[in-house]
């Protein structure tokens, strides 16, 4: 039997689907997982002035800001992926995002010419200007005007935390997702090898089977702007200071959702696998001939969960 819970957080809809034979208990545990997601939303939201992230963005250029262990370790991982991805993943892109008009909370993003803010290329960006003090657990920005945007892996981090709550409480089978672009699979549905997830697209769809693993898909959809007749997506190429162009989709399967999230963003920007790509990640980049054999090219109907479809379809076909 399935128990489903959902919440709105981080500008999208999170869902938790748990399978088991004790629905009341599953619901209780699922609620705890949802609370974890909401808690991380409150801490990491760029748009909530009372969040920890907003607080450190306001003050880290002036003085070291103390952090809790979880947030500190999250930022350490961000810096590591930044280095390994040749700068393609960079949480300091917030000023560029703002300058390009992607930080409008509601409605369509503005084109940069109508934002009236700094030109994108003038923004203070670069994770190398983040100073993390391991002993004191503090963060400091070395350039004024810097700001962090954790949109590249915040959903994945929240899902990892929620999945940890589920595991702690003995839940062995479930699927969690944030906005259908980041997915965490616990165990597998009864009589299945895992949760089959299809990346729905025109033509044959890649399908991957997830079991105790996470998947993240990045694509230049969602929030977009139009400039000179070109539609530009919200994922920023930090090295160019402008929206990433060219690659239409990058997907990563990994042990944690935040790792998958960060790397799918990086691969979309790069359009190829860098030498520093972490071991243990399974990747798919649209247009790249060297797809990992774990991706089976089948029709979307072969997946019990199709991205970007909603989970409604998935649970209907779940035993």
């Amino acid at each position: 039997m399935n128990v489903r819970l959902a919440t709105e957080a981080m500008g999208t809809r999170f869902e938790v689907v748990l399978t088991g034979d004790d629905p009341p208990r599953l619901r209780t545990v699922g609620e705890a997982a949802i609370e974890e997601i909401e808690d991380w939303h409150r801490r990491l939201s760029l748009f909530e002035p009372g969040s920890l992230l907003s607080y450190l963005n306001r003050h880290a250029a002036d003085r070291p800001v103390k952090l809790d262990d979880d947030t500190f370790e999250l930022l350490v991982e961000c810096i590591e992926v930044h280095a390994a991805s040749q700068g393609a993943f960079d949480i300091t892109v917030a000023p560029i995002m703002r300058a390009w008009g992607f930080h409008k909370i509601t409605g369509a993003a503005d084109s940069p010419s109508s934002t009236g803010e700094d030109t994108p290329t003038a923004a203070p960006v670069g994770s190398e200007f983040i100073q993390l003090d391991v002993d004191r657990r503090t963060i400091r920005f070395l350039k004024p005007g810097m700001a962090i945007d954790l949109g590249g892996l915040g959903k994945g981090h929240a899902l990892d935390a929620a999945a940890a709550v589920l595991r702690e409480n003995g839940v062995e089978c479930g699927l969690l997702h944030g906005g259908t672009s980041t997915v965490v699979a616990l165990g597998s549905p009864p009589d299945e090898d895992g949760w089959r997830v299809a990346l729905k697209q025109e033509g044959p769809s890649p399908v991957v089977t997830l079991r105790d693993a996470a998947l993240s898909v990045s694509a230049p959809h969602g929030r977009t702007i139009h400039m000179d007749g070109e539609r530009l997506g919200h994922i920023i190429d930090p090295n160019r200071g402008s929206p990433a162009r060219g690659t239409q989709l990058a997907a990563v399967v990994g042990p944690t959702a935040r790792q998958a999230d960060a790397w799918s963003t990086a691969l979309l920007v790069l359009g190829h696998r860098p030498p520093g790509l972490e071991a243990g990640l399974t990747t798919l980049i649209a247009g790249d001939e060297r797809a990992d054999p774990r991706w089976k090219v089948e029709g979307p109907e072969c997946g019990i969960f199709s991205i970007p479809d909603c989970l409604e379809e998935a649970t209907e076909t779940t035993p």
């Binding site: 009341p24 619901r27 209780t28 545990v29 609620e31 705890a32 702690e168 409480n169 003995g170």
Partner: peptide
């Protein structure tokens, strides 16, 4: 909408 229960094994 919440159960008001806290889980523990």
């Amino acid at each position: 909408k919440q159960s008001w229960r806290t889980p523990s094994s």
